[in-house]
Design a binder for these strands. Structure first.
Lengths: 152, 152
DNA sequence: GCAAATCGTGAAGCATCTACATGATGTAGT
DNA sequence: ACTACATCATGTAGATGCTTCACGATTTGC
């Protein structure tokens, strides 16, 4: 097929996409060993950060439909990671609450995150790391702006 | 929940994950407008790069099961992006071949990739870009090594 | 030739996601 | 208080992406 040599910006984008895929792989492979999937882990992580929440709140935070949260919570309940507790004041709602086992797994995830971060970035000089953080943040912000402009 | 302030490496990892998710969003939103999904686009991209191929070859390149490729090609055929042509020498195999419309879409994807790359990186000085490319490549290589060590 | 490997796909199943409909409950307005 | 309307979770139905196992149709190696 017609092969123009990739420009430098194209190379950068390709590397970025490659890294994206690799990060994805790394996450999922580590998670499946714990009996977790990526989506369910994301939900568990949100609960870890924000405490027991209604499924509506989780849906808003995760950016998915409330119906989908029902399914994700079903899976986490089946795995013994969380329970559905009655909401103290609203009988329509349930509070998705980590079990002791779920809390253990969350602690493991937090520790794993730190370990991975150290393995990846631990030996970088602080100045260089801050520059990288700034680069990544700037890229993210720019991408978000592009997405919003495309679909207003 | 217990909130230790994130370390600098943790911040870097968080930014990386954030960027990963944003890239994902950007890709899928642009693609759905074309009637494509990410997986099917990935397959189309491989065909664009390597020409008409058997489904076995596509499965190997994509890293998925041959059975899955059957489904992806089904979708692309239904959308008029590709056809299944008989293999010239092996009557068991089919050559997944882009239609004229599929070729157009591929050309659009190539152009879109360049546009996005320029929007994201076009105004970075070349030296800085090369440094970023190096950083991203090094991160990818390191991650891959970690994945392989974890599951040999 | 004949047995073994290969190609594509049917069948069955799981996970993520969607939109729409429904019952139960909460809230606000009159 | 009673009626509307909004909200919470979930049943139903369907699209997509992925897997493994089984099977018929070939090709290939000996």
């Amino acid at each position: 097929m017609s092969d123009a040599p990739p420009t430098l910006p194209e190379t950068a984008l390709d590397r970025l996409l490659e890294l994206t895929l690799t990060v994805q792989d790394d996450m999922t492979s580590g998670l499946s060993a714990l009996g977790l999937t990526e989506s369910r882990t994301h939900l568990l992580w949100v609960i870890a950060a924000g405490g027991p929440q209604t499924q509506q709140a989780l849906a808003a935070t995760l950016g998915v439909s409330p119906r989908n949260v029902t399914g994700l919570v079903d899976g986490l309940v089946a795995g013994g990671f969380v329970t559905r507790e009655p909401h103290p004041t609203d009988r329509r709602a349930t509070l998705v609450t980590p079990t002791p086992h779920g809390a253990e797994v969350i602690a493991g995830l937090v520790a794993g995150r730190r370990t991975l971060a150290d393995q990846l970035f631990g030996d970088h000089p602080a100045a260089e790391l801050e520059r990288l953080v700034g680069d990544l943040a700037a890229l993210t912000a720019r991408l978000r702006r592009l997405v919003e402009e495309a679909s207003p």
